[in-house]
């Protein structure tokens, strides 16, 4: 039997070159000696080959023959226009810029590199002096690509999320702080929700195109970038509040550089700074303050200060 790569290359060439759709019988006859003897063995091998070709993106067309010797048989071919990459006509500097963009985003996945090769660009190395790591595990990017198409087509999607089935109208994708989010309208509640795309479980099932009208959305405003400002519930405990936090040097200077001078409430003689910090989410607020270790202390409000103390005591006493 032929080497699988040789067989696949031949099959691909045959389906691309044929002027008429071909049945399995005709294919195995043309590729004499490449497929096993016997209908079921050759059928099995052909099905595996077909699946592999489709996985790498080869569009294989099918039709069922009516009339003639082949009546009722499935016939196969490849439409060259659907197979071939359209001419992109990148100039050399544009091609280099795109290659550098892939290098700069650390999209060192096989897919991004495959795209570069198809465009006639080379290998993305570590040549970028400014870079951003963008998450791209294969399962995630597959889901994102499906969602991207569903958003453009205005198609509703269904998926599993936190062990529950969700049906949503997808509005957009947001990449923030290294995570991809899907902004969508939950069909059950009629409310806008945000989903972490990497927590979508299993496959994203896409419904019919044109299923909803997409309102104009500011994706970046879908939820606050600062976790301290994300209210988890609608309860009173999560209204907007201001905390007073004292931070010692040198972290006070670093924080002031980050938040700006308007966040400074008072400066202490020892160099420490009292900051006014807005929050809605007490848990995220507590976690933020504790990130400074013993170099920061909540002064007000009382419920936050006592909450931190209680948290520390129970951590100290935990088994």
């Amino acid at each position: 039997m032929a080497n699988p790569v040789e067989r696949l290359t031949n099959l691909l060439a045959l389906l691309l070159e044929t002027s008429n759709p071909l049945s399995l019988h005709q294919i195995t006859a043309e590729l004499a000696g490449m497929y096993p003897e016997g209908l079921s063995a050759s059928r099995g091998q052909f099905e595996r080959d077909k699946r592999l070709l489709r996985e790498i993106g080869v569009p294989i067309e099918t039709e069922v023959a009516v009339g003639g010797d082949e009546a009722g048989q499935t016939r196969y071919w490849i439409d060259r226009h659907r197979y071939e990459l359209a001419e992109v006509d990148l100039d050399d500097d544009e091609r280099r810029a795109v290659q550098l963009a892939v290098a700069a985003t650390r999209s060192r996945s096989d897919s991004a590199q495959a795209a570069l090769w198809k465009l006639g660009a080379g290998r993305a190395g570590s040549e970028a002096i400014a870079a951003a790591s963008i998450p791209n595990p294969p399962q995630l990017t597959t889901a994102l690509a499906v969602l991207r198409e569903a958003i453009a087509a205005r198609a509703a999607v269904e998926f599993e999320y936190r062990s529950a089935a969700r049906a949503v109208e997808p509005l957009g994708l947001l990449l923030r702080h290294g995570f991809w989010y899907l902004v969508a309208i939950d069909r059950e509640h009629g409310e806008r929700r945000t989903f972490r795309a990497d927590r979508i479980e299993g496959e994203v099932v896409v419904g019919e195109a044109g299923a909803f009208e997409r309102p104009s959305v500011d994706l970046a405003a879908a939820f606050p970038a600062d976790p301290k400002l994300i209210a988890i519930s609608d309860s009173d405990s999560e209204v907007l509040r201001t905390a007073l936090v004292r931070v010692d040097q040198p972290q006070a200077s670093l924080l002031e550089g980050d938040l700006g001078p308007q966040s400074v409430h008072r400066r202490g003689e020892d160099g420490s700074v009292e900051f006014s910090i807005e929050y809605r989410n007490p848990e995220a607020m507590r976690a933020w303050v504790l990130g400074f270790g013993p170099d920061a202390e909540v002064l007000a409000p009382d419920e936050l200060r006592f909450g931190v103390i209680e948290w520390l005591r129970s951590t100290l006493e935990a088994r």
Binding site: G57, R82, L85, S111, A114, A115, W117, A132, P138
Partner: peptide, 21 residues
Amino acid sequence: RPLQLTSVEAFELLVAVRAAL
């Protein structure tokens, strides 16, 4: 001619370019 880009390849490429910008 090369094979067309798959939807994943096209997505990753455009994200890379837009992020680089």
